[in-house]
């Protein structure tokens, strides 16, 4: 199966490595034509303002919105911000998911952290997933057809799914744990089957 990683800026190489370990054929997407023939796209971690600006400059916003109609998209951290309809500022967004996001919600870099949490929806569901938050966002509101997928113990939402769209505040690509990438490839596979 062919999937893409948006490679304008950020840790796209780490996503690529995780996907290739699972046997996927990975394309780096920098221009609209690179989306051809893909059934899924990952929006990596990075700086959402920089990635958003480059998406506008290279005419990627509408092609990715169209791509989302039939395919899977997963955004990690900055990528999740780009998927949200509202982030409380006027930066460029794809605005594909019915979620509201607060950027840098835990504070600055000195407040970045890791935490282990259960992942009952992943296969296998044990052990806990080690989540890395780096100047991470939280999902403050989930409405419409979006559903909360994971919460911190204090109930703040850190992952959401809307059909084949997936947003996570954290960075599975920085770990050796491939369960989230396998979950995404299954979403992409389901779009491929239709």
């Amino acid at each position: 199966m062919k999937v893409g990683v948006l490679a304008l800026q950020g840790d796209f190489r780490e996503h690529r490595i995780s996907l290739e370990k699972l046997g996927a054929d990975v394309t780096e997407v920098r221009l609209p034509g690179h989306l051809d023939g893909l059934s899924g796209l990952i929006l990596p971690g990075g700086e959402s303002t920089a990635i958003g600006k480059l998406m506008v400059d290279y005419d990627l916003v509408e092609p990715i919105r169209n791509f989302a109609k039939d395919n899977a998209i997963w955004g990690t951290c900055a990528g999740a911000i780009l998927l949200a309809k509202d982030v409380g500022s006027s930066q460029p967004l794809l605005a594909l998911m019915d979620i509201t996001i607060q950027r840098n919600a835990f504070g600055r870099q000195i407040d970045s952290f890791t935490v282990g949490l259960p992942v009952p929806f992943l296969e296998p569901s044990q052990p806990d997933y080690q989540l890395t938050f780096i100047r991470g966002p939280i999902i403050t509101e989930v409405y419409g057809s979006a559903k909360p997928l994971m919460n911190l113990p204090d109930d703040r939402i850190i992952a959401s799914q809307q059909g084949r769209l997936l947003a996570t505040s954290f960075h599975p690509e920085l770990t050796e744990d491939l369960r989230f990438h396998r979950y995404f490839l299954e979403l992409a596979q389901s779009s491929h089957a239709n």
């Binding site: 304008l8 840790d11 780490e14 700086e47 900055a78 970045s112 952290f113 935490v115 890395t132």
Partner: peptide, 20 residues
């Protein structure tokens, strides 16, 4: 359970800056 940011979290921010 919130750990003191260890080396991976420090390195992680640099990973996010790549290509920038």
């Amino acid at each position: 359970k919130q750990e003191v940011p260890e080396f991976g979290v420090k390195k992680g921010l640099a990973e996010m800056l790549k290509g920038g």
